[in-house]
Design a protein around this nucleic acid. Structure first.
Lengths: 166, 166
DNA sequence: GGAGCATATTTCGCCAGCGAATCTTTCGTC
DNA sequence: GACGAAAGATTCGCTGGCGAAATATGCTCC
């Protein structure tokens, strides 16, 4: 049983609204809930990460870097994270200042910069992984495995739609 | 049929990753996709709203205000939007300067401020509604009605979990 | 009925991200 | 092989939001 009797804040919001505007309640519900959940996660993860003295955006960057095998170019990272190149420069500055990351000029194409993870960076990332995973899991585990699977599949369909319009 | 053969960028991300860290791929998939989709929507809506010279956060505030019946207090609005009171002050400043909103001291409790929508504010909101609805709809309509219903129900379950931990 | 506590909002200093402009290196073309 | 266009990264000025402190008003209790 997927349905749910209880109301959430979005239900209350939509109810106050019914009939007052020509809009699709289902679409609005989906979008509003996703926005809220993402914001909620962000706030909780930030609070949790403060335990190891790291900020959310720092972890996010380290994470992509580890995923890329320990090194990548700034523009590649920026594109993956839907971030402006300028924003990425700022992030890398702070990470480099904390010694979590190192910038190396590309040897073949000297316009490029390779960003490499330091040992300290990898270590801190590992710690942070556990913390983040716990927070995310606390939220998502409200659903059982099958339901998570269904949710993920539906979101993926939206992803493909989104990425085709880019 | 909910499943989907094609890969999205999150699939590729997770695949590069498999076995390299102790983390739950399903949870990570759900969370990462929601984050991406929200960011995607934000960017598209911002671009679309620029047509009527409005910014995303301005619309969001007007929208809640209309939903509340045309007036509400700053703190109430801030709480609903997961925004700090200070942030709300800034938003209201901009809106008031553009003449979309009006601040009135509460008559009974003079600590309070009532924020009221102006005629111009309501008019602009109506225009913006259509634009935003179109963008959201373009994304969500990748799913049929049943699937949207299922997605919404699952998200709502997560909402209730999130709101119970606040 | 005045002192202190609670509540609602704003002010202030700070930070991350954006867009535009800049600088450097590379590629393409004649 | 030189010169203009393109690509990659950074700098600069600006904006929205946050947390903490300040301000203003209302409430309570002796």
């Amino acid at each position: 049983m997927i349905g749910c009797v209880e109301d959430d804040s979005v239900d209350r919001h939509l109810a106050r609204w019914r009939g007052k505007a020509p809009y699709d309640e289902r679409v609005e519900g989906v979008v509003t809930r996703m926005q809220f959940l993402v914001k909620h996660l962000k706030q909780f993860k930030e609070a949790a990460l403060a335990q190891v003295g790291m900020q959310d955006f720092e972890f996010e960057t380290l994470h992509r870097l580890v995923a890329a095998g320990g090194s990548a170019t700034p523009s590649k990272l920026a594109a993956e994270m839907l971030l402006s190149p300028a924003g990425m420069t700022g992030r890398l500055d702070t990470l480099e200042r904390s010694g979590l990351v190192r910038r190396v000029r590309g040897s073949d194409d000297r316009r490029r910069v390779d960003v490499e993870l330091t040992a300290k960076g990898r270590e801190l990332w590992t710690e942070a992984m556990a913390i983040r995973a716990r927070v995310e899991s606390e939220l998502v585990s409200a659903l059982d495995a099958d339901e998570q699977q269904t949710l993920d599949a539906l979101l993926k369909r939206l992803m493909i739609q989104a990425e085709s319009r880019r």
